[in-house]
Design a protein around this nucleic acid. Sequence first.
RNA 1: GGGCCUGUAGCUCAGGUGGCUAGAGCGCGCCCCUGAUAAGGGCGAGGUCGACUGUUCAAGUCAGUCCAGGCCCA
Length: 950
Amino acid sequence: MTKLLDLKSTINLPRTDFPMKAQLPSREPQQLAEWDQYGLYHRILESRANSPLFVFHDGPPYPTGDIHLGTGLNKICKDMVIKSKTMAGFRVPYIPGWDCHGLPIETKVEKDLGGKKHSVSAAEFRRLCRAFATKYIDSNRRDFKRLGIFGQWESPYLTMDHDHEAVIASAFLTFYEKGYVYKGLKPVYWCLHDRTALAEAEVEYENHTSPSIYVRFQLAQNAANGEKIPAALKGRNVYGVIWTTTPWTIPASMALAFHPDFQYAGVETASGEIYLVADQLRRSVAEACGYTELKVVAIFKGRELEATGLRFRHPFLDRLEPAVLADYVTLDQGTGIVHTAPGHGADDFRTGQKYGIETYAPLDDEGRFTEGLPEYKGKTVFEANPIIINLLQSRGALLAQGKLQHSYPHCWRCHNPVIFRATEQWFIDLQHDDLRKHSLEEIHKVKWLPAWGEDRLSSMVAERPDWCISRQRFWGVPLVVFYCEQCGQQLKDFRALRNVISWFEKEGADAWFTHSAEELLPPRTKCSCGSSRFRKEKDILDVWFESGSTSLAVLKGDMWPADVYLEGPDQYRGWFQSSLLVAMGTRGRAPYRQVITHGWTLDADGRPMSKSAGNGELPREICEKWGADLLRLWVTSQDYQTDMRFSEAMMVQLAESYRKIRNTFRFALGNLAGFDPARDMVSDAELLEMDAWMLHRTGELVAQCRAWYDAFEFHRVFHALHDFIVVDLSAFYFDVLKDRLYTFARRNKSRRSAQTAMYHITSALLRLAAPILVFTAEEIWKHFPRVSGDPESIHMTLFPAQLELAPQVDDRKRENWESLMAIREQVLKKLEEARNAKVINSALEAKVEMRAHGKTLDLLKNYSSWLPQILIVSQVRVGASNGTAPASASAASGPVDEIEIARADGKKCNRCWNYSVHVGESSDYPTVCERCLAAIAEIERTQDSAVGSR
RNA sequence: GGGCCUGUAGCUCAGGUGGCUAGAGCGCGCCCCUGAUAAGGGCGAGGUCGACUGUUCAAGUCAGUCCAGGCCCA
């Protein structure tokens, strides 16, 4: 006589230690420590030793402070590329790097020194800079690792490493040797007081009162091309009128710039002269200069004036200045004609370059004129201002003068006004050996994501001026150039020059500052003039040249070129371009096969995040509050190829989505308790039809997600996974499965069919989610019933293949299930109506009567045994309708003609909660239905109750 | 001012080559359940597809102009 079972103990409820509460901020760091101890990154690479290589090259951030959200976004995107490629079966090393040299660190160190910069040696100063960079590299590294990014963190690449500095210097020498490098003049900010060049970041705009003058330049009528002068002007006394606030630049004036599209008027004055000014400004100019304009004698487009080849006489020097075109000429003030001094202005310089006009800047380091008329020669520019105004007046060229208060660049150290002054700089000639042309051809071969990247970089490379690669600083890699002390020529013995590289490999670029030229060069190095005494160049390389060289230093052997670069949109001007040019000059091809760009980080209102605006977000703080997986979810929920907004409200919503995903996995784990795949899994042929169908659908999802990972469209992966988990699993499949999982005998084949499907689905989704939810996927994996051969970490697994999830589900069956889902939707609406009408509460209290015709009727009859489960109701009756859709209220839009909801017949089974007319038929178990009786019998037979057994 | 890019429900996304009463998830509202329980389920309300003007039998989808925003220049 068997003992009666406690009903509750025969129910298989989910059971798992996997916690519902994520507590990511505290749990994630523990996981990180475990990974670190296990050496996960290297184990992954080892396990892929024979896999094809996929090379990602990291763009180096600059270590001056905490990483901000944009940097976090950048690194997380990169990590998802790396993890998804790894799981797709590639060997994907990740060597993170930092861009260590450059002005911002010099600046910070200088501030720390409190103005005592000149009291320390260059070598000591560089030591302080290195220490500063190291400090932030360490803190940045902690922050990056916290985001769940796997990589070679213990030995990243640093542009200040000795080897790296050697590679940079070597790349420069290659350019130098191939003849790309030349020395030329370029205007830079210059502080007269400190006698030094200033970077753009070192000037501060402050109020300043400048003279404001109008000057007339007489049109030269007897020039060689005099015949081309327009008839209206011919033989007349014509002047171009300009306005400037820097009278001292007039001696360096080389051209008059017109806007190509503006209308210029020739206006006749009372004294019979003709003044050329922008038509729109002719009244305000006349007023400012105090002349009366009689009439407009002619109108010209700026473009025509240039084409005519007009030339103007300098007011006091023997010089003719051509009319040129420039689109920065504006109509907000002045005359619409801009006097152009290529040696003293950035715009002016570009225009000068375009027209081949000399970059003339006759000043010494203190700003004194080194040549010119005796009136101002030897004076500083600010002393010269009134002198030149007088000079203009005495030559009859001054039309008006006044004062103007405006914002003007000042030196951030001494706060004196600064000037633009052409100085000697080093350039890379983009025309040499068709560097520009070849670069453009190469850009066309690269894959761009988004596709507009190609146009963007192409137009920049096509338009850009020669690359100025020299800086007058200390913290960087020097230009390896020596001058002969005797004849002044540059030493061009490249074998000798490359000797410096081995010094750099040994001691870093510091060697340049601690050793003499004679020590750095091989013994007996001689100039062609016979001298053996040399002087070192003082300038260092532009840091963009350094970061442009990273692929050469980091990607050894067959790793070069990289498969992918991925950075923000600012890097078209920056790293994408510098990397391309350096690679073209040294190796003749692009350093990347594909370039991906992500968007900018914006706040909730769509404003760009910045420290100064105070709307920045720190990944570290987000991790402390929400967890890294939620930050990664933020990255994946949006299309990173456009700008990315961040707000508290979005994080709240993502936390909800996360909870749902987590709980659905938890439900699966709970129902897989005790499931041993090796023992309990059923074969494809034994799977119940619905289970097979859900596996098939999971397989379709796998195929889609893998295609999206291939295309780097991570947000589509996230949305598809999320929708599938929410709609297909949580709301449908898992809900429907509860009856079978809970009430069937533990090892009943139908129950194991459900578990088999759950097992495969969970495994597949988990692997698809792993590159996104790095920590949570690992946590789930720890609770997942693994089989022998499964790796320790989810991150060592491969993505699922669609086929491994595709049992035989023919098209007809798929269509059947799709129809059944449509019918379900239709019935659910009816159930809701019934609930609202208080006919039922729980759906299990319902009996559904359906009438249909044709194919739908056949379908319902064929699947009649499935219907109560799918609908989660106690009873379903199917009947034939008369074949015409009735107009009655019971008809809903859908395949079924009529649906009626009534209370289920019989009593509620105390075990499975379904209603049945058979409840009470057993004397042993009087509160139980016939299905449960059968289940109990099976449990008694197999001695396999839910409690105690395993 | 110039080059490039973005603009679909409160939020995040789908909507090849023009043809739909514009979809999804979340959120929101109402309801159910209490054997996924600081969970689970159902239903519902939300959009003049940035604006305007064209092309077309037909435009979120093509063209032009404009507006708002972003990156990089100036």
